[in-house]
Nucleic acid binder design. Structure first.
Length: 166
DNA sequence: CTCCGCCTACCAA
DNA sequence: TTGGTAGGCGGAG
């Protein structure tokens, strides 16, 4: 069965993000493209009510985190098709609260795979829902920034907004 | 199987 | 401190 996706924009002060929904929930959150944002009006007619509701939650939560506040409610997240290892990493990431950070090694230990440090990095890089699943709160063991698939600039900005100093 | 990576600890300058 | 590196693991092909 082929998944039907619904892509909806979220306009923020950091640009236009694109949220992608399946019938199960939010599946992806994509950063604004590097260039200018192409704004295309979205016709709410034809969008299933649950998705409209989820999208309101996504938009509110995203704007909150970008402003350095805690996301109150998230829509259901659709992680279908992902590996158990990845899901366990992302679950652990969701427990890191605003202003807190963990190292990749700490996440690895937290999920019971203390030797899978690099693999945790890989799972962070594969996180389909950045910002709301806060992979930006994971730093290298030496306290340095580590990597970020969305660009280190964004990781620094998010952390700064949350009051984390490197 | 091979290759790669948002890592780490360790060792040499 | 900085720079190079081997090791351990999961994911992708």
């Amino acid at each position: 069965m082929k998944t039907r996706w619904v892509d909806l924009p979220v306009y923020t002060r950091a640009g236009q993000f694109i949220a992608r929904y399946s019938e199960k929930g939010l599946a992806e959150l994509n950063f604004p493209p590097v260039g200018r944002a192409s704004s295309r009006a979205v016709n709410p007619i034809g969008i299933p009510a649950p998705i409209r509701r989820w999208h309101r939650a996504t938009a509110t939560a995203l704007k909150a985190v970008l402003a350095g506040r805690a996301a109150k409610t998230l829509p259901p997240l659709d992680w279908s098709g992902k590996t158990e290892f990845q899901k366990s990493v992302w679950r652990a990431l969701r427990k890191i609260r605003r202003g807190q950070t963990r190292s990749y090694g700490e996440i690895a230990r937290a999920i019971g795979s203390p030797g899978a440090v690099r693999a945790v990095g890989g799972a962070c890089g594969a996180n389909p829902i950045p910002v709301l699943v806060p992979c930006h709160r994971v730093l290298a063991a030496n306290g340095k920034i580590g990597g970020f698939s969305g660009g280190l600039k964004r990781k620094r900005e998010l952390l700064a907004r949350e009051g984390v100093s490197l």
